[in-house]
Design a protein around this nucleic acid. Structure first.
Length: 150
RNA sequence: CCAGACGGCCGGGCGAUCGCGGGAGAAGCUUGCUUCCUCGAGGAAAGUCCGGGCUCCACGGCAAUAUGGCGGCGGGUAACGCCCGCCGGGGGUGACCCCAGGGACAGCGCCACAGAAAGCAAACCGCCCUGCGUGCAGGGUAAGGGUGAAAGGGUGCGGUAAGAGCGCACCGCGUCUGCGGUAACGUAAACGGCACGGCAAGCCCCGCCAGGAGCAAGACCAAAUAGGAACGGCGCGCGGCCUUCGGGCUGCAGGGCAUUGCCGCCCCGGACCGUUCGGGUAGGUUGCGUGAGCCGUCCGGUAACGGGCGGCCAAGAGGAAUGAUCGCCACGGCCUUCGGGCCGGACAGAACCCGGCUUACAGGCCGUCUGGUCCU
C-alpha cells in the first residue's frame, strides 16, 4: 500500500476486526484498556503477490477505538475516543509493533485522567504488550527505539 | 434602593505548537503524494411529540362509514396541535398570570358518602291552622335547623294563621328588540315570576383535518461465486448387469430429406466449451445542501408576520472530522502580608432538510413595566 511503514497507521472499521482483537491479549491501565492482535502476516513473510491478503498486508499497524454507553452520552464517548486517538497518535509509532491490530477501549476514567497520566497508561500497556514470548524477529529495531526514547 | 412581573440576547476572548474532516482553490514534482490557502457543531445539535418539503409504493372520480386527532373568535403561515391579537371565566394590591373554553331541549348513562329528599321533585326536625281523648290525627308551608361538591334563584321590604316570586325594589337568569363590534361577545330597554341542576377528562352528537412507509427513502455504476437467457460449435448420450467404486461388459439411440438399408445434411433434445446479455450481492457513486436560507435597511401592520432594495454563500462525515498541550486576558469563588496566590467552566455533539413544541442548563447582559421606601 505504501512504502513508509512507520508513519502510516491504518484504522479498524469493520465489526469483525474488533471482535477478533477482543480475543487477543489485553492490558488494563488506569485510564485505558489496550488490546493487541498479531495478524500473523509479519514483515518477514512479505507481501505475497498471489495471495488475497494484500489488503491487510505487511508492516502496517492498525488501530481502533471503542467507547461503550456505560461511559456516558455522546459527548463523553466522543471525548474519550478523541483523547485516546491523540494518545495513540503520539505513542503508537514509538511503542507499537508492526503487523498488529490495536484496540483502545475507553473506561469511565478516561475523561478525567490527566493527560500525562493517560499517556503513561498507554505507554505502559503498549510496552507490556510488545514483549510476550512470541517476539517477531523484526522487534529488535523497535526495542532499540524504545531505549532511545527513555 | 428593595421586592416582583414580562420580553429579548449571550453561552468566554486572543495567540503559539502539534494534529483531524471537507474543498472542481493554488503550486510543486517522483501522478498520488507534499506544501500553502480556505471552511469546519447548538441554543437546545437532545427528546423524536406535532406540522411540512423531498422520495418510493398504492390509488378512476365523488360521497359515506370506521379509526385517530383537533375544538371561543379573528388573523399569521407552506402547514400545524404553533404564533399574534381579542373575547369569556378564574387568580393577584398591581405589572401580569392561568384555562381540553363546541353541544346537556338528539339519545343513553352517572351524581359516591352524608342526608328526609339527588331529578317528571318530595318533606326528617320544625313553623302554623283545625279537631279532640293534651299528644296524637288531618291539613297548610318550605322561612329556620341539619347533610352535601351540588337542595328547584339571592338580599331586603311588604304580606300572611305560618309561609311562599304571593307582590315590589335591586342583583342573577331566560326571551325578544335596539345599539356597538368582521366575529367571539358587550351593552340598554321591555317582557317573563324562575321555568331550563351538574358531569361530555363516561359513551355520544356536531364541525374541521388526515392513503402508507421512510434517506437503511430512492437513483446509478458494478467484482468474485452460483444460477438464468440468447447465439455458435458439438451426438459427446441413455438403459441393463457386474464391480476391488478406478471402471468393465452389453444393448439401444428422436424427427425430416417419397419409401427400405447405409452414408451425408438439417431440426430437436442434452452434456461440455466459447461469446454476449439481463437481474443482482460485496463494494463504489449519488441523493447531500442556493435554502419556506442568512445579514443590513426601508415600508405596511397593535402584533404574529408580509413586501421592496442591497449584500453574502456559511459543516457535510460514513468506526463517523471540529482535538491535545501551553501562555495571556476576562468572568466566578476562596485566601491575602493588598503586591498577589490557589481553584473553577452549565446542559450538551450535526447525520436528508426546514417550521414548531417539550425537556436540560454554570454564569451573565439589556430593555419595558408594577408595588414599596428614601431624597429633591
Amino acid at each position: 500500500m505504501t512504502e513508509a511503514p512507520r508513519s502510516k497507521i491504518g484504522r479498524l472499521k469493520v465489526r469483525a476486526e474488533f471482535l477478533k482483537a477482543a480475543k487477543a491479549p489485553y492490558q488494563a491501565r488506569g485510564g485505558v484498556v489496550v488490546q493487541a492482535r498479531d495478524r500473523g502476516d509479519g514483515p518477514e513473510t512479505g507481501p505475497e503477490p498471489g495471495l488475497e491478503s494484500g489488503l491487510e498486508s505487511g508492516t502496517e499497524m492498525r488501530v481502533g477505538f471503542t467507547a461503550t454507553k456505560k461511559i456516558g452520552g455522546a459527548v463523553k464517548r466522543n471525548r474519550a475516543k478523541r483523547r485516546l486517538r491523540e494518545a495513540a497518535r503520539a505513542l503508537l509509532p514509538l511503542h507499537g509493533l508492526p503487523g498488529h491490530d490495536y484496540v483502545f477501549v475507553a473506561r469511565a476514567t478516561t475523561i478525567d485522567r490527566d493527560w500525562a497520566g493517560l499517556l503513561d497508561d498507554v505507554k505502559a500497556a503498549l510496552i507490556r504488550l510488545s514483549r510476550p514470548k512470541t517476539t517477531p524477529p523484526s522487534n529488535t529495531d523497535t526495542a532499540s527505539r524504545e531505549k532511545t526514547v527513555r
